[in-house]
């Protein structure tokens, strides 16, 4: 039972982490609270549903972040750049953007549920418990992605520019950093991460225009607990939320699990006595 709870918790946490990572990067760098984040997860799932047939599942998973990231780049240049560093404007703007994306997908793809076959259906024994391989893949990819993004930000030259632009956009600009380009890059990265999350959950789920809302809510829960902008905290809190959820849901039920998780989250946030916005990157 304990192994099941931890494994299940980490796999719930992996999905939460993947969707929270993008949200946190976008806020951390450009101060935009992206309420259309769930829609980018949905676009990733549709990309997976469309591409996994012709390309095969693994190539589709690799290509999907590029596809969704490209859409993100376009959206940044056409809309988001007018909303930088104004959380209220950005919330309104991206809320509207989410509606537009959902309706466009509804018009193009129709309201029907799509499905993606599981790339791996086998399970392996770990500590005497049979665990589904696809869930383990999900956990591993979330961890690898989180670490890669954190390393890129802290070690690479591009990451350095991102951090400079985040710390002080005006100074960075004066020192020759193209802040506008850095922001576009960050938004593309954030949406690409959402797309990856969508591609990975699609085989465990069905794909439909309104699917994104669930992921936005989950991602926000993690980001509120971890503080916007912190990647390491996002990973840790995602795992924590996942494990608490499954610790209640496995022996009892999912409704109670939601009650427990949100009550704990409220208590933690209230005890901290500070705003949602803790630190940036």
């Amino acid at each position: 039972m304990l192994v099941q709870i931890v494994a299940q918790g980490l796999s719930v946490g992996a999905v939460l982490a993947l969707s929270a990572l993008g949200l946190t990067v976008i806020y951390g760098v450009m101060g935009v609270v992206n309420l259309a984040h769930g829609e980018f997860v949905m676009l990733g799932a549709y990309s997976m549903a469309i591409l996994s047939g012709p390309l095969g599942p693994w190539a589709a998973i690799a290509v999907t972040p590029l596809v969704v990231g490209a859409i993100g780049l376009f959206v940044d240049r056409s809309l988001i750049r007018w909303l930088y560093r104004d959380p209220v404007k950005s919330m309104l703007g991206t809320f509207g953007l989410g509606i537009v994306i959902r309706q466009l997908v509804l018009i193009v793809e129709g309201p029907g549920l799509r499905y993606v076959d599981l790339p791996i259906t086998s399970s392996v024994a770990i500590f005497g418990e049979q665990l589904p391989v696809w869930r383990l893949v999900l956990i591993a990819l979330a961890l690898v992605t989180g670490i890669a993004v954190a390393l890129w930000l802290s070690r690479s030259r591009a990451g350095l520019k991102v951090r400079i632009a985040t710390a002080d956009a005006d100074v960075a600009s004066a020192l020759g950093t193209n802040v506008s380009r850095v922001n576009a890059l960050a938004f593309a990265l954030g949406t690409a991460l959402a797309g990856l999350a969508g591609a990975l959950v699609a085989p465990l789920n069905s794909v439909y225009p309104n699917m994104g809302v669930t992921y936005l809510v989950g991602a926000f829960l993690v980001v509120i607990l971890a503080g916007l902008g912190s990647i390491r905290n996002a990973l840790l809190w995602a795992a924590g939320v996942g494990i608490v959820t499954s610790a209640v849901a496995v022996p009892r039920d999912d409704v109670l699990a939601q009650v427990v998780v949100w009550t704990l989250a409220l208590a933690i946030v209230a005890m901290r006595r500070q705003t949602v916005v803790v630190s940036r990157v």
């Binding site: 039972m1 299940q8 669930t214 849901a249 496995v250 999912d254 409704v255």
Partner: peptide, 16 residues
């Protein structure tokens, strides 16, 4: 066992 209408994550139930 019953689930909220919008639930699409059943891993915990499947473990049980």
């Amino acid at each position: 066992r019953f689930f909220p209408l919008d639930q699409t994550e059943f891993g915990s139930a499947l473990s049980a």
